[in-house]
Simulated assay, not measured.
Amino acid sequence: MHPAISVIFFTVMSGAGFGFMAMIGLGWPMPQGPLSAFLICFLAGGLAVIGLLSSTFHLGHPERAWRAFSQWRSSWLSREGVLAVVTLMLFGIYALVWMTTGERIGALGFVITILSLVTIYATSMIYAQLKTVPSWHSNLTPVCYVAFGIASGLVLAATFGAKHGMMGNMAALFAGLSLMIAWGAKALWWSHADGVGFSQTGSDTGTATGLGHLGKVKLFEKPHSGENYLTKEMMHQVGRKHSKKLRRISVILGLLIPFLMAALSYQFGGHGLFMFIGFISMIAGLFAERWLFFAEAKHAVSLYY
Protein backbone atom coordinates (compact mmCIF):
# COMPACT_ATOMS: atom_id res chain seq x y z
CA MET A 1 0.00 0.00 0.00
CA HIS A 2 1.10 3.56 -0.65
CA PRO A 3 2.24 5.07 2.70
CA ALA A 4 0.49 8.46 2.61
CA ILE A 5 2.11 10.93 5.02
CA SER A 6 -1.27 12.40 6.00
CA VAL A 7 -2.61 9.01 7.12
CA ILE A 8 0.61 8.16 8.96
CA PHE A 9 0.46 11.51 10.76
CA PHE A 10 -3.21 10.92 11.53
CA THR A 11 -2.81 7.50 13.12
CA VAL A 12 0.29 8.39 15.16
CA MET A 13 -0.72 11.83 16.45
CA SER A 14 -4.38 11.06 17.13
CA GLY A 15 -3.33 7.87 18.92
CA ALA A 16 -0.97 9.86 21.14
CA GLY A 17 -3.61 12.53 21.77
CA PHE A 18 -6.38 10.13 22.73
CA GLY A 19 -3.91 8.03 24.71
CA PHE A 20 -2.95 11.12 26.70
CA MET A 21 -6.63 11.94 27.22
CA ALA A 22 -7.16 8.44 28.57
CA MET A 23 -4.44 8.97 31.17
CA ILE A 24 -5.83 12.37 32.15
CA GLY A 25 -9.29 10.87 32.45
CA LEU A 26 -7.95 8.17 34.74
CA GLY A 27 -6.90 10.91 37.12
CA TRP A 28 -3.17 10.71 36.52
CA PRO A 29 -1.60 13.23 38.94
CA MET A 30 -0.73 16.46 37.15
CA PRO A 31 0.57 19.92 38.10
CA GLN A 32 -2.13 22.04 39.72
CA GLY A 33 -3.43 25.43 38.66
CA PRO A 34 -5.68 26.74 35.87
CA LEU A 35 -2.78 27.51 33.50
CA SER A 36 -1.31 24.03 33.89
CA ALA A 37 -4.72 22.46 33.37
CA PHE A 38 -5.24 24.54 30.22
CA LEU A 39 -1.85 23.71 28.71
CA ILE A 40 -2.12 20.00 29.47
CA CYS A 41 -5.64 19.70 28.06
CA PHE A 42 -4.75 21.87 25.08
CA LEU A 43 -1.84 19.55 24.26
CA ALA A 44 -3.96 16.40 24.55
CA GLY A 45 -6.83 17.81 22.51
CA GLY A 46 -4.46 19.49 20.06
CA LEU A 47 -2.63 16.25 19.24
CA ALA A 48 -5.94 14.48 18.61
CA VAL A 49 -7.42 17.30 16.51
CA ILE A 50 -4.29 17.84 14.42
CA GLY A 51 -4.16 14.12 13.73
CA LEU A 52 -7.81 13.99 12.72
CA LEU A 53 -7.54 17.05 10.49
CA SER A 54 -4.49 15.64 8.73
CA SER A 55 -6.52 12.60 7.65
CA THR A 56 -8.75 14.83 5.50
CA PHE A 57 -5.79 15.67 3.25
CA HIS A 58 -5.90 12.11 1.93
CA LEU A 59 -9.46 12.60 0.72
CA GLY A 60 -10.19 13.55 -2.86
CA HIS A 61 -12.68 16.15 -1.63
CA PRO A 62 -11.81 17.19 1.95
CA GLU A 63 -14.79 19.55 2.02
CA ARG A 64 -17.08 16.51 1.94
CA ALA A 65 -15.49 14.85 4.98
CA TRP A 66 -18.54 15.70 7.10
CA ARG A 67 -20.62 13.24 5.06
CA ALA A 68 -18.64 10.33 6.49
CA PHE A 69 -20.37 10.81 9.85
CA SER A 70 -23.67 9.55 8.39
CA GLN A 71 -22.29 6.07 7.66
CA TRP A 72 -21.61 5.03 11.26
CA ARG A 73 -23.81 1.93 10.97
CA SER A 74 -21.51 0.27 8.45
CA SER A 75 -18.23 2.19 8.33
CA TRP A 76 -15.45 2.07 10.91
CA LEU A 77 -14.14 5.32 9.46
CA SER A 78 -17.45 6.97 10.26
CA ARG A 79 -17.58 5.41 13.73
CA GLU A 80 -14.09 6.66 14.43
CA GLY A 81 -15.14 10.17 13.46
CA VAL A 82 -18.27 10.12 15.61
CA LEU A 83 -16.41 8.68 18.60
CA ALA A 84 -13.65 11.26 18.23
CA VAL A 85 -16.10 14.18 18.21
CA VAL A 86 -18.04 12.87 21.22
CA THR A 87 -14.82 12.22 23.14
CA LEU A 88 -13.43 15.68 22.38
CA MET A 89 -16.70 17.35 23.44
CA LEU A 90 -16.73 15.54 26.78
CA PHE A 91 -13.04 16.22 27.25
CA GLY A 92 -13.72 19.91 26.63
CA ILE A 93 -16.27 19.89 29.47
CA TYR A 94 -13.82 18.00 31.70
CA ALA A 95 -11.07 20.53 30.92
CA LEU A 96 -13.33 23.53 31.53
CA VAL A 97 -14.37 22.25 34.97
CA TRP A 98 -10.76 21.42 35.82
CA MET A 99 -9.55 24.90 34.83
CA THR A 100 -12.28 26.84 36.60
CA THR A 101 -12.72 24.82 39.79
CA GLY A 102 -9.55 22.75 40.06
CA GLU A 103 -11.69 19.61 40.29
CA ARG A 104 -11.26 16.62 38.04
CA ILE A 105 -14.60 14.81 37.80
CA GLY A 106 -13.80 11.14 38.27
CA ALA A 107 -16.91 9.67 36.62
CA LEU A 108 -16.62 11.90 33.56
CA GLY A 109 -12.90 11.18 33.36
CA PHE A 110 -13.53 7.44 33.38
CA VAL A 111 -16.01 7.78 30.50
CA ILE A 112 -13.45 9.85 28.57
CA THR A 113 -10.81 7.17 29.16
CA ILE A 114 -13.07 4.44 27.79
CA LEU A 115 -14.15 6.53 24.80
CA SER A 116 -10.56 7.51 24.02
CA LEU A 117 -9.45 3.88 23.88
CA VAL A 118 -12.52 2.89 21.87
CA THR A 119 -11.74 5.70 19.41
CA ILE A 120 -8.22 4.34 18.92
CA TYR A 121 -9.74 0.88 18.47
CA ALA A 122 -12.11 2.24 15.81
CA THR A 123 -9.14 3.77 13.98
CA SER A 124 -7.39 0.41 13.95
CA MET A 125 -10.49 -1.36 12.64
CA ILE A 126 -10.46 0.82 9.53
CA TYR A 127 -7.52 -1.37 8.51
CA ALA A 128 -8.04 -4.57 10.51
CA GLN A 129 -11.42 -5.19 8.83
CA LEU A 130 -9.89 -5.42 5.35
CA LYS A 131 -9.71 -9.06 4.28
CA THR A 132 -8.03 -7.90 1.08
CA VAL A 133 -4.87 -7.04 3.07
CA PRO A 134 -3.88 -10.25 4.91
CA SER A 135 -1.25 -8.63 7.16
CA TRP A 136 -3.78 -6.10 8.48
CA HIS A 137 -6.67 -8.54 8.87
CA SER A 138 -5.68 -9.74 12.33
CA ASN A 139 -6.73 -9.24 15.95
CA LEU A 140 -3.17 -8.10 16.58
CA THR A 141 -3.74 -4.91 14.57
CA PRO A 142 -6.16 -3.29 17.08
CA VAL A 143 -4.04 -4.64 19.94
CA CYS A 144 -0.99 -2.80 18.57
CA TYR A 145 -2.88 0.42 17.90
CA VAL A 146 -4.42 0.55 21.37
CA ALA A 147 -1.17 -0.52 23.06
CA PHE A 148 0.80 2.19 21.26
CA GLY A 149 -1.88 4.75 22.13
CA ILE A 150 -1.68 3.83 25.81
CA ALA A 151 2.13 3.77 25.78
CA SER A 152 2.49 7.16 24.07
CA GLY A 153 -0.15 8.59 26.41
CA LEU A 154 1.67 7.22 29.45
CA VAL A 155 5.06 8.53 28.32
CA LEU A 156 3.57 11.98 27.76
CA ALA A 157 1.65 11.85 31.04
CA ALA A 158 4.87 10.94 32.86
CA THR A 159 6.47 14.03 31.30
CA PHE A 160 4.07 16.25 33.21
CA GLY A 161 3.14 14.09 36.15
CA ALA A 162 6.32 12.20 36.95
CA LYS A 163 7.15 14.11 40.11
CA HIS A 164 3.50 14.24 41.10
CA GLY A 165 2.71 10.70 40.00
CA MET A 166 1.64 7.55 41.72
CA MET A 167 4.26 6.73 44.36
CA GLY A 168 6.59 9.48 43.17
CA ASN A 169 8.80 8.48 40.26
CA MET A 170 6.76 5.32 39.59
CA ALA A 171 5.25 7.21 36.62
CA ALA A 172 8.42 6.44 34.68
CA LEU A 173 8.14 2.76 35.65
CA PHE A 174 4.60 2.53 34.30
CA ALA A 175 5.70 4.23 31.09
CA GLY A 176 8.59 1.79 30.65
CA LEU A 177 6.33 -1.23 31.18
CA SER A 178 3.79 0.08 28.68
CA LEU A 179 6.56 0.48 26.09
CA MET A 180 7.65 -3.13 26.54
CA ILE A 181 4.07 -4.41 26.21
CA ALA A 182 3.32 -2.31 23.13
CA TRP A 183 6.46 -3.29 21.25
CA GLY A 184 6.05 -6.90 22.35
CA ALA A 185 2.65 -6.86 20.64
CA LYS A 186 4.25 -5.28 17.58
CA ALA A 187 6.87 -8.04 17.45
CA LEU A 188 4.04 -10.59 17.36
CA TRP A 189 2.31 -8.54 14.64
CA TRP A 190 5.47 -8.51 12.50
CA SER A 191 5.86 -12.26 12.96
CA HIS A 192 2.27 -12.77 11.83
CA ALA A 193 2.60 -10.36 8.89
CA ASP A 194 5.76 -12.09 7.65
CA GLY A 195 4.06 -15.48 7.66
CA VAL A 196 0.65 -14.67 6.23
CA GLY A 197 -0.07 -14.42 2.52
CA PHE A 198 -2.86 -14.53 -0.03
CA SER A 199 -2.88 -18.31 -0.04
CA GLN A 200 -4.21 -18.29 3.53
CA THR A 201 -7.12 -16.09 2.42
CA GLY A 202 -7.97 -18.20 -0.61
CA SER A 203 -6.97 -15.46 -3.06
CA ASP A 204 -4.80 -15.98 -6.11
CA THR A 205 -4.51 -14.83 -9.69
CA GLY A 206 -7.49 -16.97 -10.60
CA THR A 207 -9.82 -15.31 -8.10
CA ALA A 208 -8.45 -11.86 -8.97
CA THR A 209 -9.26 -12.29 -12.67
CA GLY A 210 -12.40 -14.39 -12.19
CA LEU A 211 -10.93 -17.09 -14.43
CA GLY A 212 -9.96 -19.58 -11.75
CA HIS A 213 -12.74 -21.98 -12.73
CA LEU A 214 -10.93 -22.57 -16.05
CA GLY A 215 -7.78 -23.82 -14.39
CA LYS A 216 -4.50 -22.35 -13.19
CA VAL A 217 -4.19 -18.75 -14.32
CA LYS A 218 -0.90 -17.05 -15.20
CA LEU A 219 -0.34 -13.42 -16.18
CA PHE A 220 1.84 -12.95 -19.25
CA GLU A 221 1.89 -9.16 -19.00
CA LYS A 222 0.33 -6.33 -17.02
CA PRO A 223 -3.24 -5.30 -17.94
CA HIS A 224 -2.10 -1.66 -18.36
CA SER A 225 0.90 -0.20 -20.12
CA GLY A 226 1.22 2.61 -17.55
CA GLU A 227 0.40 3.44 -13.95
CA ASN A 228 -3.12 4.09 -12.72
CA TYR A 229 -4.79 4.87 -9.39
CA LEU A 230 -4.69 1.25 -8.21
CA THR A 231 -1.02 0.74 -8.96
CA LYS A 232 -0.15 4.01 -7.20
CA GLU A 233 -2.35 3.59 -4.10
CA MET A 234 -2.66 -0.17 -3.62
CA MET A 235 0.80 -1.34 -4.63
CA HIS A 236 4.09 -0.27 -3.10
CA GLN A 237 7.38 -2.11 -3.24
CA VAL A 238 9.79 -1.94 -0.32
CA GLY A 239 12.94 -4.06 -0.34
CA ARG A 240 13.41 -6.64 2.40
CA LYS A 241 16.77 -5.09 3.25
CA HIS A 242 15.24 -1.63 3.69
CA SER A 243 12.31 -3.11 5.59
CA LYS A 244 14.57 -4.75 8.18
CA LYS A 245 16.60 -1.56 8.53
CA LEU A 246 13.49 0.55 9.13
CA ARG A 247 12.18 -1.96 11.65
CA ARG A 248 15.40 -1.63 13.61
CA ILE A 249 15.21 2.16 13.42
CA SER A 250 11.61 2.14 14.64
CA VAL A 251 12.53 -0.09 17.60
CA ILE A 252 15.55 2.04 18.53
CA LEU A 253 13.60 5.29 18.38
CA GLY A 254 10.28 3.97 19.60
CA LEU A 255 11.40 1.57 22.33
CA LEU A 256 15.07 1.64 23.33
CA ILE A 257 15.55 5.39 23.64
CA PRO A 258 12.20 6.05 25.41
CA PHE A 259 12.85 3.10 27.73
CA LEU A 260 16.31 4.47 28.53
CA MET A 261 14.77 7.88 29.23
CA ALA A 262 12.19 6.24 31.51
CA ALA A 263 14.98 4.46 33.37
CA LEU A 264 16.89 7.73 33.80
CA SER A 265 13.73 9.49 34.95
CA TYR A 266 13.13 6.73 37.50
CA GLN A 267 16.75 6.91 38.67
CA PHE A 268 16.69 10.69 39.12
CA GLY A 269 13.39 10.91 40.98
CA GLY A 270 10.94 11.26 38.12
CA HIS A 271 12.54 14.05 36.09
CA GLY A 272 10.10 15.12 33.35
CA LEU A 273 12.77 16.27 30.88
CA PHE A 274 13.89 12.69 30.30
CA MET A 275 10.32 11.61 29.58
CA PHE A 276 9.82 14.50 27.16
CA ILE A 277 12.88 13.40 25.19
CA GLY A 278 11.53 9.86 25.31
CA PHE A 279 8.16 11.00 23.96
CA ILE A 280 9.70 12.85 21.00
CA SER A 281 11.83 9.82 20.19
CA MET A 282 8.84 7.49 20.50
CA ILE A 283 6.78 9.56 18.07
CA ALA A 284 9.66 9.42 15.57
CA GLY A 285 9.81 5.65 16.01
CA LEU A 286 6.07 5.32 15.54
CA PHE A 287 6.28 7.29 12.29
CA ALA A 288 8.77 4.70 11.01
CA GLU A 289 6.63 1.83 12.32
CA ARG A 290 3.47 3.24 10.74
CA TRP A 291 5.22 3.91 7.42
CA LEU A 292 6.15 0.24 7.31
CA PHE A 293 2.61 -0.72 8.33
CA PHE A 294 1.38 0.71 5.04
CA ALA A 295 4.41 0.17 2.80
CA GLU A 296 4.72 -3.55 3.57
CA ALA A 297 1.00 -4.24 3.17
CA LYS A 298 0.01 -6.18 0.06
CA HIS A 299 -3.48 -5.62 -1.30
CA ALA A 300 -5.27 -8.41 -3.17
CA VAL A 301 -5.48 -6.15 -6.24
CA SER A 302 -1.74 -6.78 -6.74
CA LEU A 303 -2.64 -10.30 -7.84
CA TYR A 304 -4.28 -8.80 -10.92
CA TYR A 305 -1.34 -6.54 -11.72
Rank of each mutant, 00 (worst) to 15 (best):
S124K: 04
T207N: 03
G25Q: 03
L219H: 13
E80D: 06
S265K: 02
R240Q: 15
R247Q: 14
G46H: 02
G226R: 14
A48M: 06
L96Y: 13
M282I: 07
P134R: 00
L173T: 15
V217K: 06
S178G: 11
F293W: 08
R290W: 07
A284G: 05
G81Q: 07
M261W: 10
V301A: 13
M13N: 05
K131P: 07
M89H: 00
F287H: 12
W72I: 10
K222S: 14
I283W: 01
G215T: 08
A37H: 08
A295K: 04
V251C: 12
G285N: 03
L246E: 07
G33R: 08
M23R: 04
A95Q: 03
W28D: 08
A95C: 15
M125W: 00
M282K: 07
G19I: 04
G60V: 06
L256E: 02
A37E: 07
V7N: 01
I252H: 07
A185V: 11
F69K: 09
T11G: 00
F10M: 11
V49A: 11
G109T: 10
E289D: 11
S6W: 02
G46I: 08
L83H: 05
F91A: 11
E233W: 12
S152R: 01
A208F: 09
A151Y: 07
A22M: 09
L253Y: 10
A147P: 00
G106C: 07
G45F: 01
V146L: 12
L273R: 15
R67L: 14
Q32G: 02
S178E: 01
L115T: 09
H271F: 14
E221M: 14
K131S: 09
F160M: 12
V111Y: 09
L173C: 02
S74D: 11
G60S: 12
P31I: 06
I249S: 06
S265Y: 08
F268Y: 15
S116E: 03
K244V: 15
L211M: 12
T101Y: 13
D194L: 05
L264E: 00
I249F: 04
I249G: 01
K298Q: 12
K241N: 15
W76C: 08
I5V: 14
G202F: 04
A16F: 08
T56C: 12
M1P: 00
F18E: 02
A122Q: 05
M125K: 11
Y304D: 12
P134S: 01
L219G: 01
M282E: 08
A175H: 06
L230H: 10
F160N: 06
V196P: 01
I126L: 10
T123I: 13
I150N: 06
Y127H: 10
S250K: 05
L115G: 05
M234I: 02
Y145C: 02
V238E: 11
M99A: 05
V155S: 05
L255I: 09
A95M: 13
K244L: 15
Q129L: 06
V217P: 04
I277F: 15
M167D: 11
T11F: 00
A44L: 13
F293D: 01
L179T: 05
F42I: 09
G81L: 10
G215Q: 11
G60L: 11
F294W: 10
A122I: 03
A65R: 02
R67K: 15
